[in-house]
Design a protein around this nucleic acid. Sequence first.
DNA 1: ATTTGAATAC
Length: 642
Amino acid sequence: MIWKITSLIFHRPKQVLSSISNPFSRQRILLSTFPANSPDLKTLCSNGQLKEALLEMGIQGLEVEFQGYDSVLTECISQTAIREGQRVHAHIIKTCYEPPVYLRTRLIVLYNKCRCLGDARRVLDEMPERNVVSWTAMISGYSQRGYASEALHLFVEMLMSGTAPNEFTLATVLTSCTSSSGFQLGRQIHSLVIKTNFESHIFVGSSLLDMYAKAGKICEARGVFDGLPERDVVSCTAIISGYAQLGLDEEALDLFRRLQREGMRSNYVTYASVLTALSGLAALDHGRQVHSHVLRAKLPFYVVLQNSLIDMYSKCGSLTHSRRIFDSMPERTVISWNAMLVGYSKHGLGREAVELFKLMKEENKVKPDSVTFLAVLSGCSHGGMEDRGLEIFYEMVNQKDGFEPEIEHYGGVVDLFGRAGRVEEAFEFIKKMPFEPTAAIWGSLLGACRVHQNVHIGEFVAHRLLEIEPENAGNYVILSNLYASAGRWDDVRMVRELMKEKAVIKEPGRSWIELDQTLHTFHASDRSHPRKEEVFAKVRELSIKIKEAGYVPELSCVLYDVDDEQKEKILQGHSEKLALAFGLICTPGGTPVRIIKNLRICVDCHNFAKFLSRVYGREVSLRDKNRFHHIVGGTCSCGDYW
DNA sequence: ATTTGAATAC
């Protein structure tokens, strides 16, 4: 009997199949009698001929078996071909009585890759039964697109359904545990990892240590790393980038060097992470070394790596190199543009930032995002182009397919007004904006009040600011500067008292300078440097010399209750002056000096550097926490506003 | 099916 049917189908397939009404029997017969037609589809797909495969499928009507669908879907996934995928999906619904779990899972993967998470989720929800792979595929879809809470919810749902996670599930779900709310679950998953003996699995371990690093728990991350029975590039890169992202740049570099000695084979992600650490240190010589190493290694083109090179050169003070890399790129992402724009902005080059932004829109390949606007706004602010900045802000607000401005953008506008001396307008703008002002926004306005000597608004702002972040020493210093500039010495004293009362913890100031590939670091009143006597003597010498040109120490920068002579001594011990003096000692006259400081530079050190640049004919490039100061012939590129 | 990476106002 079966043989007869088979023979009939073989000669008149369409008629026979359509005469069988039960879809289940139909499919059974189809599958048991037809020689697999998947090899043809498989061949076409492995040649990347998706269109031809679809055509074939259409001609053959019902006669595609599961293996064939599998080949076609796999190719759709690799080509991110959503339209073809949708047609295959429709075909499957039409012809398959009960698509097996693995076919449905392929559909989930396809929709996830094509950013159609809703469609993927629908496939999952319609599955009569799910296995660990289908759960994991959907969790991964959510994780990769940043839907952390959806990923975590689904993971919990999976556990409740009684499906046990495997190493793939754990590695995936841990990437969604980096938020503060997710971190609690992350710890619980860690115990699950231990219980199920996946602790030494390399992917699970990498993911776990990355989670700890991103949560700022670097010691725990290191613990996981050290406990791994074997290491690969990914786990090594994860721990290096963990240090770098927390600003522990030296540690990141030390570890990188050690792992390299121990045989780690770096890839482009490793180099990108190392460049992040070097950007933090502004270690230009080392950055150049990594760059030439990367060139010698003849790696294929990686946008990510180029982006981090742009950022490294700009943070090391060499914008020309950044732009050279930017211009040479065959392809750019929004991050490439943002990195370049942030570079111009940090160097105070508003005009260049606006020009580049214009170019970006003209090219119309990459859509500006929220960071792009932030960078351009800040560029306008630092470049003294407040009207252009306001225009761009309103352009952003009125964009049709754009996004709502975030609080940071409002902060940018406050900064624009403040910098331009329009302190009242800045204040009114804050009152009207749809957000509760943050410390950053008040801080920006307080800075404006200091520069433009608006004691009235300044006092109000300072009051707010000291409520929100009483522990930030910088705020007290600016308020003290403000009172001093108005000659209100009683209030200067009051600020000092207030600061003592609140037990402010000051992040220790630290400056450094790179000479012959070595970083020389100085702390405030540093007595540890081997050439300290020479350095202190040099600061005193410089001080005396520039006083003749009109330099007056800004004593209101010192918030200790000591006499003026003592205050001047404290000022002379500021780390940036030590680094500057050391630079003058160690380099021939006329060469530029490049200094980096971890905090915002104080008014007195800024004055000091300006006078020095004029009297000694030295160009000073100083990078502080916020921006670059290019000081030439007595004037600074920041226009005395920072 | 899974892990690492680049930019963010003051």
